[in-house]
Write a protein that binds this DNA or RNA. Structure first.
Lengths: 197, 197
DNA sequence: TCAATACACATACGCTGCGTATGCGAAATT
DNA sequence: AATTTCGCATACGCAGCGTATGTGTATTGA
């Protein structure tokens, strides 16, 4: 069996990550105090340094966890779609919608890149991006999409969705501009479609 | 005439901004020490707080300056193009190329949003984005582009270009993937074109 | 031109917050 | 049961930011 120590440690890690998500999301990475954060979790900075090596390591763990959750939601969105092409679009829309959540916005879109560097270089391999790349490659293979570089297209699509999300989130009435963003996104994406000869 | 004091003050501001650009670009915002930075400019933190109110204010000034330079380069790129539509594409390509510069990448794309919040909310109004929006609106008016929301389209286009740039900059051989990104960008953009009926 | 004032910037201080070194107690090993 | 391991708390030192205060030079008014 897993030792009691290992169990306890996992619990500690979970508590710290939970508190960190809350703190990073509400105050931002820079303004979040490790002392406060750990106290919130009923621990001290000692636990933090032992488990994550430091503030940045904790951020890394938080980002990985959220990234994981986002991938899962993208999978669900894609699975719901009628065709693979619609699946790609649904993935993008799901991405946009997720970025409406302050937590995702602040941690993944604003602070994450500044603290950990370009997302595509994250250890997690940026699962979201990888998924999109695979989907596009499949669409190219089946002739639905023009033979462009799949990774390039994936990054552009994701980037477009990302900025759409930031725009929406910063808008006075997010839910009013969301449809406009989604519509523009769908239109833009058609540029990748194979022009039937 | 402008008083000597005002002249001197402008000079001081310029020196601080120059030193800040260098420091922020090379070390990143968080790791840049105000003491070192100001000493580099032959000044102290006193001057900084008097002129910019703090570290964040200095960042703001730096961002504004770079943003201004980017707009100018985008204007040049657009002016070179044969048509307005090609002008939009050239703007995007110029944007991608600019983001190859470490200074732009680090300050504008990574740290900027984390420190100052979403770019579209910057006081400068994000001149780059405003330009793109206007261009797209003109293209819609002349019937070249589908009647989508101009601002939404602009954000998507800019976002796509931005991420393409980040991808390129992080690549092993940036200049090898640049053409792939540009090609994908041009293809994607065609999605906005009016489908001739 | 000379006093008085304003003001740009330097100096000095305190506080917060990170990272590290050390200590302790409970689980694990023998 | 004795010993070792190790997860976490405690204690310390230091860097860096923001503010309050000082100082010298440019500006104003007569």
């Amino acid at each position: 069996m897993a030792t009691k120590r290992a169990q306890k440690m996992e619990e500690t890690r979970a508590k710290l990550i939970r508190a960190a998500r809350e703190a990073f999301a509400s105050k931002g990475y820079a303004a979040a105090s490790m002392d406060e954060l750990t106290a919130e979790a009923g621990l001290t900075r000692g636990a933090l340094y032992h488990n994550f090596g430091g503030k940045q390591g904790l951020m890394q763990a938080v980002v990985d966890q959220i990234d994981q959750e986002m991938v899962e939601r993208m999978l669900v969105a894609q699975a719901r779609a009628a065709s693979r092409w619609e699946g790609l679009l649904e993935e993008g829309v799901a991405y946009i919608e997720m970025a409406l959540e302050p937590e995702v916005q602040r941690i993944m879109l604003l602070d994450g890149p500044a603290v950990l560097g370009d997302p595509s270089q994250w250890p997690n391999q940026n699962a979201c991006l990888l998924r999109t790349t695979q989907t596009i490659q499949a669409l190219i293979d089946e002739g639905t999409v023009k033979p462009v570089d799949a990774e390039a297209a994936a990054r552009l699509i994701n980037g477009a969705a990302l900025n759409a999300a930031l725009w929406i989130a910063a808008a006075d009435e997010p839910h009013a501009v969301l449809p406009k963003a989604v519509e523009a996104f769908r239109q833009l994406a058609t540029g990748l479609l194979q022009t039937e000869g």
